[in-house]
Nucleic acid binder design. Structure first.
Lengths: 135, 135
DNA sequence: GGAGATTTATTTGTGTACAAACAAACGACC
DNA sequence: GGTCGTTTGTTTGTACACAAATAAATCTCC
């Protein structure tokens, strides 16, 4: 018998909502989970095109446009044009962006730890490995 | 060293996106995952208030209002007022809604099976049990 | 150097997701 | 029956999430 509560898609939504709650509880830089991901990824990459950033953070071109716009408005990134290709918008961190990266890493680790709190260390490893196979 | 690709929140987003892709690939009634959940839940409950439906599908009051509006526009549900409490909007299935429920159950099962395809039967059980503990 | 395919980005539209403000209705208490 | 707290629902606003249409720019081929 079909039960909504046992469907992986439905449970994924509930788990994501709880993760969002944990994220918002800890958040103090006014960033959303999506903005956080984009910012952390720009820091990893040093600077990159908007399109590549979207692809490296699993965001649609329209979505990353909005996220980058808001990160710029918040002063964490600055935009430029690629001298070698006028189509490209180059995204890089501002000084302010650089300053908060270490704090974002700590914050992100705390969110992950609290989200995974119901699982022990061995379970976390198994769970993340399986979840990753579903992506 | 902090890695975005290893954070549970980020991986949950990727898994949800893949699930959405699987859902859209199979979908032929023009329903979104959220509308599907709401419709299947109304069928389970026989009829219920909009507020209860929202709570039983983990949707905010503003969100369930929109979802119910669209399900009504698509002809799957009808709305009424609770004679015992004028505040309440009662949501129930139309004939059309009743007609598609068996099909929705099959479709939902297919989506779940395909989403979980990278895991074997034993792994699925373990995974769903752990995922449920994170909700 | 012109044509055509592809890439990058913007814009518009639809559908969530949720916070917050607001209003009608209900029930408990006096 | 009036007050107050709570419940249910609507509306507005912000932030995604993504499809589709559009345009500028690039690259390849002729």
């Amino acid at each position: 018998m079909y039960k909504l509560d046992e469907q992986v898609g439905y449970i994924l939504r509930l788990a994501s909502q709880r993760h969002a709650t944990v994220f918002n509880k800890h958040s103090d830089l006014g960033l959303t989970p999506t903005q956080f991901s984009a910012l952390v990824r720009v820091a990893e990459m040093g600077s990159c095109s908007q399109n590549l950033l979207g692809r490296r953070t699993a965001m649609d071109v329209a979505t990353i446009k909005g996220v980058v716009t808001r990160l710029k408005a918040k002063g964490f990134v600055e935009l430029g044009t690629d001298p070698g290709d006028k189509r490209r918008t180059v995204v890089s961190l501002t000084d302010k962006g650089h300053e908060v990266i270490a704090q974002l890493h700590s914050f992100g680790q705390a969110v992950t730890d609290e989200t995974l709190a119901p699982l022990n260390t061995a379970e976390r490893k198994v769970f993340l490995e399986m979840l990753t196979r579903l992506t």
